[in-house]
């Protein structure tokens, strides 16, 4: 699986290859996609948005391009939803061959649940724990449910911008 990094023609992978394979697999469920080019040597950065039910199949689809490198899960705190951004990359190991793939998914604040990806990527455990304790997201089937950064009896979610319990602690 690690060898599948080039396209059929032996050329380097491009962002368009990844987006078209996701479009083929998910069809209309691929809500948004865009490719940016950053840096001195322009490299591709792929941004895609999918519904939260499809997160595990999406990560699995990424494995067809080689073992992805998992960086972190970031979260954007909007008034009515939390947008999780799964930051991964494929194509590492070759000069200027890496492509950043960022998969976004929305979680409505009334239903902050999403399935864990630790079965596919065990290294995501710490990021998922962090989202649980900082944003109040419930990760279903997470291997270990304890807090990692905050004390076990901490009340409040510091990642949420307007959290009164945390605001009170800041004034001390």
């Amino acid at each position: 699986m690690d060898k599948i990094r080039k396209t059929q023609g032996g050329e380097k992978m491009k962002g368009t290859d990844i987006v078209s394979s996701f479009k083929k697999k998910f069809g209309k469920k691929l809500l948004e996609s865009k490719i940016e080019q950053n840096g001195k040597i322009k490299y591709d950065v792929v941004w895609m948005k999918i519904p939260k039910k499809e997160i595990v199949p999406a990560i699995q689809q990424l494995f067809t391009f080689g073992t992805p490198h998992f960086a972190v899960i970031s979260a954007n705190d909007y008034p009515d939803k939390i947008e999780l951004v799964y930051e991964l990359s494929v194509g590492w190991g070759e000069k200027a061959g890496e492509i950043l793939v960022n998969i976004k998914t929305d979680l409505a604040k009334k239903d902050l649940k999403i399935h864990s990806i630790c079965e596919l990527i065990p290294g995501a455990l710490i990021s998922e724990k962090e989202k649980q304790e900082l944003f109040g997201v419930k990760i279903v089937n997470i291997p270990d449910n304890r807090n990692f950064f905050l004390p076990q009896d901490f009340k409040g979610h510091p990642g949420i911008k307007k959290d009164k319990r945390v605001d009170m602690l800041e004034v001390e």
């Binding site: 905050l150 409040g156 510091p158 602690l169 800041e170």
Partner: peptide, 8 residues
């Protein structure tokens, strides 16, 4: 200063 996890 004014960090929630720093007590002083």
């Amino acid at each position: 200063h004014h960090h929630y996890n720093v007590v002083g």
